[in-house]
């Protein structure tokens, strides 16, 4: 009986560990794809500077934010979303891959994008970077993913991605405060 109990505990433990690993693995693939410069686009912009510290274990709180609804609403014309709208609007589906990450700092070694730089504002001077962001949330739902950025606790930007041909591709962005159209 004890052996059976130990076996169950071991199985559950391994399952949790595996899920955590899957989430982390997806996070780094998503970040690498999101910040990679597309060689076919002439406008690439400047390098990005991002806070090493994150709060990804709190990612589920984004599902209660109005930005989540706006993000899906703005992106709903997309072919991908038309195909999977029920899947996407069900918030529970965004937690099937539980946002659990072992360290509250990003691992630089898992980033292979030259134009993405992680900086720790607690120990490094970041004042020379005009736009410095912090990643508040990353969520996955099958082939879809969301990244939520925060600039100086003042501007919040949510990006929706879809995994296509092995790469995450952006399909929609919304912000708070929202930007006006013209």
């Amino acid at each position: 009986m004890r052996i059976l109990l130990l076996l169950c505990i071991l199985l559950i433990s391994n399952s949790c560990k595996s899920q955590q690993t899957d989430y982390e693995k997806n996070v780094y693939q998503l970040l690498n794809d999101a910040y990679t410069r597309n060689p076919n686009v002439s406008y690439i912009g400047e390098d990005a500077y991002v806070n090493t510290n994150h709060s990804l274990n709190e990612s589920s709180s984004f599902l209660k934010d109005s930005l989540f609804d706006r993000l899906l609403e703005q992106s709903k014309w997309q072919f991908y979303i038309k195909q999977d709208s029920t899947l996407l609007y069900n918030k529970e589906n965004w937690l099937l891959l539980e946002p659990l990450i072992s360290d509250n700092k990003f691992d630089h070694n898992k980033i292979n994008v030259k134009n993405l730089h992680f900086k720790n504002p607690d120990v490094e001077d970041v004042s020379m970077h005009t736009f410095f962001s912090k990643i508040d949330a990353v969520l996955f739902n099958n082939e879809f993913a969301i990244i939520v950025d925060n600039l100086y606790d003042s501007l919040f930007v949510a990006h929706l991605y879809v995994l296509k041909d092995g790469k995450y591709k952006d399909i929609g962005t919304v912000s708070y405060p929202p930007r006006a159209n013209e």
Binding site: A34, Y35, T36, R37, N38, N40, V41, Y43, I44, G45, E46, D47, A48, Y49, V50, N115, L116, F131, S133, I147, D149, L151, L155, V157, H159, K169, D170, I171, G172, T173
Partner: peptide, 9 residues
């Protein structure tokens, strides 16, 4: 949407 995320921010 093809512009890197940091630049879009």
């Amino acid at each position: 949407e093809q512009i890197p995320q940091g630049e879009r921010n």
